[in-house]
Amino acid sequence: MKKIYKAPEEIPLQIDLKTVFLAGSIEMDKAINWQKRCEELLQDQFVIFNPRRNEWDSSWSQTIENIHFKEQVSWELQALERADIIIMYFAGDTMSPISLLEFGLYAQSHKMKVVVEENFWRKGNIDIVCERYSVEQFKTLEELIQNLLNKNI
């Protein structure tokens, strides 16, 4: 069975393992490729949904009329809905508006685990929402990954 699905690959209806969606900072590649690290460490125990598309074109107009853009956003929404666990990573020195939108959509889902770096511009907001809705927070991505691996043994 395939273990990593990247946008816009079709996600099968039947998946036998727990699934993890890698949500968080990409910001037109301003953020480090943290998703690659997650893939490497988690793919033995989980099926990964990674929205970081291999052939992204930043010249695409971000409108509903643009078929490539609509395909990307639709894939992400479907994968978020299907995921058992959502890793939400907010990298410092990024704005991450789409990640903030997804965070708001899934804050009460009980399937999100969050890392927000100290210098993220809205860290206070993230901390308060996590506290209010009992969203698990971790200081580092490595800590979050170890938590997932230990719970899935």
Rank of each mutant, 00 (worst) to 15 (best):
K2T: 13
K3S: 14
Y5K: 04
Y5R: 04
K6P: 01
A7E: 11
E10A: 10
I11R: 04
P12H: 10
P12I: 12
P12T: 10
L13C: 08
I15W: 11
L17C: 04
V20Q: 09
V20F: 09
S25E: 04
S25D: 06
S25C: 06
E27C: 05
E27I: 01
M28R: 13
A31D: 01
A31N: 00
I32H: 07
Q35E: 05
Q35M: 02
Q35T: 12
Q35H: 14
K36N: 06
K36F: 10
C38K: 02
E39C: 13
E39S: 02
E39Y: 04
E39P: 02
L41N: 10
L41R: 15
L42T: 03
Q43M: 11
Q43C: 12
D44W: 02
V47H: 07
I48W: 05
N50C: 01
P51T: 08
R52D: 00
R52I: 01
R53E: 02
S58V: 04
S59Q: 08
S59P: 01
S59Y: 03
S59F: 05
S59E: 08
S59K: 09
W60V: 02
W60D: 05
I64K: 05
I67S: 12
I67W: 00
K70E: 04
K70D: 06
Q72R: 03
S74W: 01
W75A: 00
E76L: 10
L77M: 15
Q78I: 12
A79I: 03
L80N: 06
L80M: 13
R82T: 11
R82P: 00
D84T: 06
D84S: 09
Y89W: 04
F90P: 06
D93I: 01
D93R: 14
T94S: 11
S96A: 15
P97S: 08
I98H: 01
G104F: 11
L105E: 06
A107Y: 07
A107H: 06
A107G: 00
Q108S: 07
Q108D: 03
H110G: 08
K111Q: 07
K111I: 09
M112K: 06
M112N: 06
E117S: 04
E117F: 07
E118W: 01
N119E: 10
N119L: 08
N119T: 13
F120H: 05
F120A: 03
W121R: 10
W121E: 06
W121N: 08
N125W: 07
I126A: 05
I126M: 06
D127M: 07
D127N: 12
D127P: 00
I128E: 13
V129G: 01
R132S: 09
Y133G: 03
S134E: 15
S134C: 12
V135I: 15
V135P: 09
Q137F: 03
K139Q: 13
K139V: 13
L141K: 01
E142R: 10
E142A: 15
I145C: 07
I145E: 09
Q146I: 13
L149Y: 09
N150Q: 14
N152F: 03
I153H: 12
I153L: 13
